[in-house]
């Protein structure tokens, strides 16, 4: 490979994979907020839930 092509290959990897690594590190260091506003209780379920039918 030519030195210019190698330089841009390395640059692409550094910027994009570096961005991925940095965002993963940011997320790992602080996965969630500790200070959510009041409220916001879960409104979810993991199963499919009851089937509803008209009478």
């Amino acid at each position: 490979m030519t030195p210019t092509a190698i330089l841009f290959l390395v640059l692409a990897i550094a910027v994009v994979w570096g961005g991925l690594t940095a965002s993963l590190l940011v997320l790992r260091a602080r996965p969630e907020r500790a200070d959510y506003p009041a409220g916001g209780e879960h409104d979810q379920r993991e199963d499919a839930g009851p089937v509803e039918r008209d009478t």
């Binding site: 994009v16 994979w17 961005g19 940095a22 940011v26 602080r30």
Partner: peptide
Amino acid sequence: YRRRRSNLTAPALVVAFANSSFEILAGI
């Protein structure tokens, strides 16, 4: 489908950069 108390932006950065990382890999 995420809980109300969920981190949104930091995972979005991971998703966006992971997508581009795969593109660079595919390019190679």
